[in-house]
C-alpha cells in the first residue's frame, strides 16, 4: 500500500535535485531557479504565525563546524527546525577531533549514529567533497577554506533578484578581500551562470593570482583596482570582510591606507545606480570595509540577506531530500 503513494501519484510536477550541495560551479540557471521557487514558498512559511512544517520530520541534521561560525550555524539550525528535522551541533573544540580523530572517522561515526544530512564547515578546501564520497548522508558545504560557500551565494543571488527583479545583465561589484573569500568565489560562479556581469575590486595583493588564465579554476571576470571606477553604474555593491585572521603574509601594508582607498562610504556608493544595493555577507568590520553610516542606510540589504538565508537553506534542505538513502 505504502508503495502505491509514490512519485507516480504526485499531482504536482516533480523536480530532480542533487543530493549534495558543495559549490555553485556546476549549477545551471534552471537549477538556481528551482532553488528560488522553493525559497519563495519557504518565505511564505516564515511569514506565518506557526513557522514550522513537517517536511523533514524524523530526519537528523548534523551541523559539523571545524571553524567558528554563529550566523551560518544558527541559520542552518533554524532552517532545519522549521522543517521539523532534529538538529545536533558539533563544534570541534570539545569533540573527539581534539583527541585526534580523523575527519573520515568522525563522519563515519556520525553516519552510524543516523545523520541524514551533514552541514559542514572546514578550514581546508575540498574537505566536504571527500566526505560526500564516503557517506550516504546528504552533504552541504557551509564553507571550506577559501573555496566555496554555496548557500551564502544563493541567498545573495536570491536577495538581488528579489529586490531588482532580475539577475541577467546586472553589474555586481565585489569589493575587498577576494583572495581569502569563499563567498566571492561561489558568487562568481553563481552570478556568471545566470548572466550577471561581475567586477572584482581590491588591492592587487587581494586578487587571486592567475585569475583569468585558462587553467585557473574560476570563470574570467573583470578586475578594476580603482574603487571609484569599479563602482560606477553598479546595480549591486558587495563588500567583503577583511579577514585579518587569515592575513599572515602582510598582504596589506597598512589598514588605514586600505580604508582610504577601498572603504565604501556614502560618496562612493552614490557613484552606483540610484537604487543600487549594498550587500555584505557579515560579520561587518564597521569602519574598515564599510563606513558606519552606510551599514544601515536605505540601500543596505544586509539584514535581508540574513533573513533570506533561513529561507534559502530551508529550500536546499527540502530539495536535497533529507538523505538517508531514500525509499
Amino acid at each position: 500500500m505504502a508503495n502505491r503513494i509514490s512519485v507516480a501519484d504526485l499531482t504536482a510536477p516533480t523536480e530532480t535535485f542533487r543530493p549534495h550541495v558543495l559549490d555553485l560551479d556546476d549549477f545551471s540557471p534552471r537549477e538556481v531557479e528551482v532553488v528560488f521557487e522553493a525559497t519563495d514558498v519557504m518565505k511564505e512559511v516564515l511569514g506565518r504565525e506557526i513557522k514550522k512544517v513537517p517536511a523533514l520530520r524524523g530526519k537528523t541534521l548534523v551541523n559539523l563546524f571545524y571553524e567558528a561560525s554563529t550566523r551560518t550555524r544558527v541559520s542552518f539550525e533554524l532552517a532545519a527546525k522549521n522543517l521539523s528535522a532534529d538538529v545536533v551541533n558539533i563544534a570541534v573544540s570539545g569533540s573527539s577531533v581534539a583527541k585526534g580523530e580523523s575527519l573520515l572517522d568522525t563522519i563515519r561515526t556520525l553516519q552510524a549514529l543516523g545523520a541524514d544530512m551533514i552541514v559542514m564547515r572546514h578550514s581546508q578546501a575540498g574537505a566536504p567533497y571527500l566526505v560526500a564520497r564516503h557517506v550516504k548522508s546528504c552533504v552541504l558545504n557551509a564553507g571550506d577554506g577559501w573555496h566555496a560557500h554555496p548557500s551564502q551565494a544563493l541567498l545573495d543571488l536570491y536577495t538581488m533578484r528579489e529586490r531588482l527583479g532580475r539577475l541577467e545583465g546586472l553589474k555586481v561589484v565585489i569589493v575587498g578581500d577576494i583572495l581569502h573569500s569563499r563567498v566571492a568565489r561561489s558568487n562568481i560562479w553563481g552570478l556568471t551562470a545566470v548572466g550577471a556581469r561581475v567586477v572584482l575590486c581590491a588591492p592587487p595583493t587581494l586578487i587571486p593570482f592567475g585569475l583569468g588564465r585558462a587553467e585557473y579554476p574560476l570563470p574570467e571576470v573583470e578586475v578594476e583596482y580603482n574603487l571609484d571606477r569599479a563602482i560606477e553604474g553598479a546595480d549591486v555593491v558587495m563588500a567583503l570582510r577583511i579577514q585579518k585572521e587569515r592575513h599572515k603574509e602582510g598582504l596589506l601594508p597598512d589598514l588605514r591606507e586600505y580604508v582610504r582607498l577601498y572603504q565604501i562610504d556614502r560618496t562612493r556608493l552614490a557613484r552606483a545606480k540610484p537604487h543600487a544595493l549594498l550587500m555584505h555577507p557579515g560579520p561587518v568590520n564597521e569602519g574598515i570595509e564599510l563606513a558606519a553610516d552606510v551599514v544601515t542606510c536605505a540601500q543596505s540589504v544586509i539584514q535581508e540577506q540574513v533573513a533570506n538565508g533561513v529561507a534559502v537553506r530551508m529550500a536546499l534542505l527540502y530539495l536535497m531530500g533529507g538523505g538517508g538513502g531514500g525509499a
Binding site: S6, V7, A12, G321, G324, G326
Partner: peptide, 10 residues
Amino acid sequence: LKLRGVRPRL
C-alpha cells in the same frame, strides 16, 4: 517525502 533526488515541486 522519502525518495531521494526527486521532489514534488512546491
